[in-house]
């Protein structure tokens, strides 16, 4: 019964009555829990490697912070952004990136491998929503540890700035961070499904790392076509700048947070459209 229903959902038909919908949520929660258990078992069988990857990420994070300290040896502000505000920005950007990494990144980068080896056929045949299982198959547990570091750095920077954000500010920050995670996920997913067309799309996927670097720079430094492109086309300048602006009280009008939310929804829709188009023309690599 549920299997039939899942099949219908996959082909895009509308959901059934509410009691059934609750059953679906429970079913998917169950599947996701199983995927988690699987990931934990996988990570724990290479403990030293697990710790080494955390060290790598910590080092890269420290490097960003060191870079900012060097910049602020020579200047007081970048635009209106002071040193500790930029530290807060780098922390928030790292937090968003790590949460994205925890849930989605490996799955996106693995997509071309799934196509190349023909494992995609197997996943498509499973009686669950195929995008769900492709996007969330593995969890990167180390990324949660790194997200915690990012939060600590942010807390320290907030102390230096003597910030005491109210509940609304923190809630707004959290909502916009989630929007940022979905922007990263949607764009990365769109890039990854290029591998349906050219199987070796690794170069494109790793190119996304370069975009992360924009997300942690203060938006006021940019102008002209660059700023427009990375606000309205690839909204990297919204992802972490806008949530931090809320925390430090740099928001003059509501259009920036609203734009961020709208871009997040827009990116999700675009990625779903891309997914459907590429599934339609998918011909298995193994046959």
């Amino acid at each position: 019964m549920t299997m039939e229903f899942a099949d219908k959902r996959q082909s895009g038909s509308e959901g059934g009555p509410s009691w059934n919908r609750r059953g679906i949520i429970r079913r998917y929660a169950g599947i996701y829990a199983a995927l988690w258990r699987n990931s934990v078992a996988r990570e724990m069988s290479f403990k030293a490697n697990f710790l080494m990857w955390i060290l790598v990420e910590v080092l890269w994070f420290a490097l960003q912070l060191a870079f900012v300290s060097v910049l602020y040896l020579h200047t007081e502000t970048i635009g209106t952004w002071t040193k500790w505000q930029v530290v807060l920005l780098i922390g928030a950007s790292h937090l968003i990136q790590q949460v994205f990494q925890a849930f989605f990144l490996i799955n996106c980068t693995n997509l071309s491998e799934l196509v190349r080896t023909g494992k995609m056929d197997f996943l498509l045949m499973l009686p669950v929503n195929s995008r769900f299982v492709v996007s969330l198959r593995q969890v990167d547990l180390g990324a949660f540890v790194n997200a915690a570091w990012a939060l600590m750095v942010m807390a320290y920077a907030a102390r230096q700035l003597q910030l005491s954000p109210g509940f609304l500010q923190i809630a707004g920050f959290a909502v916009l961070c989630v929007a940022g995670v979905f922007i990263h996920y949607s764009l990365m997913f769109l890039l990854s499904i290029i591998s349906f067309w050219t199987v070796r799309a690794q170069g494109i996927v790793y190119g996304y790392y370069n975009l992360f670097q924009i997300a942690r720079m203060p938006d006021e430094a940019f102008s002209g076509a660059f700023r427009i492109a990375f606000t309205f086309a690839v909204p990297m300048l919204l992802v972490s700048n806008v949530p931090v602006r809320i925390l430090v009280g740099k928001i003059e009008n509501p259009w920036m947070p609203l734009l961020t939310l709208a871009m997040s929804v827009g990116c999700l829709i675009a990625s779903e459209w891309g997914w459907r188009v590429s599934l339609k023309q998918y011909t298995s690599a193994s046959s």
């Binding site: 910049l71 200047t75 970048i78 924009i214 720079m217 203060p218 430094a221 940019f222 660059f226």
Partner: peptide, 12 residues
């Protein structure tokens, strides 16, 4: 992006 950031630093 780096060049933009430097330009902003010099401008200030």
């Amino acid at each position: 992006a780096m060049l933009y950031v430097w330009r902003a630093i010099y401008a200030g």
